[in-house]
Design a protein around this nucleic acid. Structure first.
Lengths: 219, 219
DNA sequence: GTCTATATCCTGATAGAC
DNA sequence: GTCTATCAGGATATAGAC
């Protein structure tokens, strides 16, 4: 699933990393078992310690890959957008699409954060520093530019980015709970997941860009 | 912190539950240690098994309390709102305030979900069923009413609720990462957390209600 | 109800033969 | 590089005295 950017990795290392990622994403740091990783990779448990010294070392490699992949995709899809509207659509489409296709990635990051997140913070700084232009700086700049050009209102750029990302990620993060709530409330019978995600992109753009207030109504 | 709604619980049970909640929230299901819970409560480890049969049993009790508390507060603060605008402000203020004051609660729920969430789903249904009017039904109804009365545009109510909750929760969920990104991007020097949360409420309301598009600009 | 001691199991990691 | 066997530590849970 992820193409490695490191230069010298054998095929077996790749297989192990894939297996380890599945296991860590499924069960988290404390819940993941070295035996289970070995089973997923179809190798002996001893081999894990031969290729990667310890569980911790393996975990950090996985964390690095997930961040590198996720931030890389988003950055790649927004960096060349021209108008603010283009940027907004690209950002929403990419984050909803990626987190929808593989919800375990943002869940994995959230889980790491909820357990203190020290490792995640260090890793994050490293990953962002490796980008020619850090993702966050680019996003903030796009919003600032939109304000300067008079296309959008003078909102706080950082606050808006938070609203944007939160709106896009939340479905993936809370899908299990949402499905339960949805069935209770009766608004998701015969659920078409892919269609829902497509609609989600449009609805987020619509609300963030135009708001929900009816023009001319009250006030 | 949480006042129990169960009828028959001794003082010591309460102390243990508080300690267990802290430990589970800090380290998750697999990471939490019975010994650590005993230490936090200032009792012997054996007492844990005397009062609560097993770790699993204790965990479920905690999960129930957290959900009951969180959903209860939100429901209580929106159920009597009159206009749609009142409802929107009340929902945003409550969720930002509660998740900001204690970010570990939403993190705890997210973590449970990321690890499969089966227990969470069952518990969620139970908690919602116990509310006179389920929180989710009330929120959907408020949006529908706003549309019917012509106050807001005809958006998909479920989609809007997702955008609303995601926007409000995201800061609390990703705060460790955001602070790191913030310092990198230089938009959060000398951070005043409480002031930030107050501003966050206003910004979310502003974007969701009015959108960010400048009136009369292009198109 | 509360303690000490212990059973039983599981985990990450390593030693050593091949 | 790859296997079998095993160590040493730590986890939940219980037995049994008081």
């Amino acid at each position: 699933m992820f193409h490695s950017s490191e230069s010298e990795e054998g095929l077996k290392e790749q297989i192990i990393l894939e297996a380890a990622m599945d296991e860590f994403i499924a069960h988290g740091w404390t819940g993941a078992r070295m035996q289970a990783i070995a089973d997923r990779a179809g190798i002996n448990k001893t081999l894990l310690h031969y290729y990667f010294r310890s569980k911790k070392n393996l975990y950090q490699r996985i964390l690095y890959r997930v961040m590198k992949y996720f931030f890389g995709i988003v950055l790649g899809n927004i960096v060349e957008s021209g108008s603010f509207e283009e940027f907004l659509r690209a950002a929403i489409d990419t984050i909803v699409e990626e987190s929808g296709r593989n919800p375990r990635l943002p869940m994995f990051l959230m889980q790491e954060l909820s357990l203190g997140g020290k490792t995640a913070r260090v890793m994050l700084r490293e990953v962002l520093n490796e980008q020619k232009q850090p993702l966050t700086a680019v996003m903030l700049e796009k919003v600032r530019k939109g304000i300067e050009e008079g296309v959008i209102r003078s909102v706080d750029p950082g606050q808006f980015i938070l609203t944007l990302i939160g709106s896009c990620l939340y479905f993936a993060l809370a899908e299990p709970i949402i499905m339960e709530i949805g069935s209770l409330a009766g608004f998701m019978e015969g659920f078409d997941r892919d269609g829902f995600l497509q609609k989600r992109k449009k609805e987020i753009f619509s609300v963030l860009y135009y708001g929900i207030r009816k023009r001319g109504a009250e006030e």
